[in-house]
């Protein structure tokens, strides 16, 4: 059951990462001179999205196994 939950979490995080990458790519294609700033903002946003999954995988999964 926890495996299914983790899989669902991965789906959401993957969609979110793809959307961030897509938006950054579009911005970079429209304004190549702003690539530096866009990359910084993209990496920050990706870090926060990734953290959601890492917290789920390492903190919540541990809690589930303790409860069960």
């Amino acid at each position: 059951m926890a495996g299914i939950g983790l899989g669902l979490g991965i789906v959401g995080v993957a969609i979110a990462l793809g959307m961030i990458g897509m938006a950054a790519m579009q911005g970079m294609a429209r304004q190549p001179e702003a690539i530096g700033k866009l990359q910084t903002a993209m990496l920050i946003a990706m870090a926060f999205v990734e953290l959601v999954f890492l917290l789920t995988a390492f903190v919540l999964a541990g809690t589930f196994t303790q409860i069960r």
Partner: peptide, 14 residues
Amino acid sequence: NVSLSVRLYGNIFG
């Protein structure tokens, strides 16, 4: 603190 450390740990350990 937690976010900085768990991010690095999770990526490398994963």
